Amino acid sequence: MKRLLMISYDLNKAPSEEYKALSDYLNSIADSGLMKPLESVYLIQTAMTAQQVSEGIKKVLTSEENGLRNGTRWVVAPIKLSESTGWISESKIEWWRKAVKAGL
């Protein structure tokens, strides 16, 4: 079952490699779409559960030598766009509309 998940994160001024690792991971699991409507927020369509995505994020952001950096936080939550509202850029609206039409 495809679901829409919102990932909000605070990498606490992490090195750029961590931001890239998070972005690469989310792009790799997004079945048919990914949107970044705000600075520290992603919306992804995926068959994975919020728990699975959260565990994946932890793996990508944890280094063998240092573990998980202090202050690194994230939230993964299922959302229903048809019941959501906000103010986003015009370029993101079409993605939003297609996801609502798909029942997400």
Rank of each mutant, 00 (worst) to 15 (best):
E94R: 05
K98G: 00
K58T: 12
S63M: 08
Y19I: 07
R73L: 14
A21G: 06
V41A: 02
L43T: 07
I88T: 11
I79L: 14
W95E: 00
L81V: 07
I44Y: 02
R69C: 04
M48N: 14
K59M: 12
M48R: 15
R73H: 10
S54T: 09
Y25C: 01
W96Q: 01
S89W: 04
A21Q: 10
D24T: 14
T46P: 08
I7D: 04
N12M: 06
S23K: 12
T85L: 03
G86C: 04
S91E: 10
L61E: 03
W74Y: 09
K2R: 14
L26W: 02
I88L: 10
R97V: 10
W87L: 11
S40N: 14
R73S: 12
E39S: 10
K36V: 04
L4G: 13
M48F: 15
G71W: 08
S84F: 04
K13H: 15
L11I: 07
I93H: 00
V100D: 00
E90T: 12
V41D: 06
M35F: 02
N12I: 09
D24A: 13
L5I: 04
L43E: 03
T62H: 04
A21I: 06
L26M: 02
D24H: 09
S91D: 06
K59F: 06
V60W: 06
G67C: 05
G56S: 07
I29F: 02
L26Y: 01
I93S: 00
S84V: 02
S54N: 05
P37Y: 09
D31R: 08
S82I: 13
N70H: 14
V100F: 01
G56M: 08
L11E: 05
K92M: 03
I79K: 05
G56L: 07
S16M: 13
N66C: 03
A50Q: 10
A47E: 15
K58H: 12
S63H: 12
I79S: 02
K58E: 15
L68E: 06
K13T: 10
P15T: 11
L11A: 09
L68P: 01
I57F: 07
V75K: 08
D31A: 13
T46L: 10
E94V: 02
Y25H: 03
I57S: 05
S40T: 15
I79N: 05
K98M: 03
L26D: 01
G86L: 04
T46R: 09
E83T: 08
L43D: 03
R3V: 14
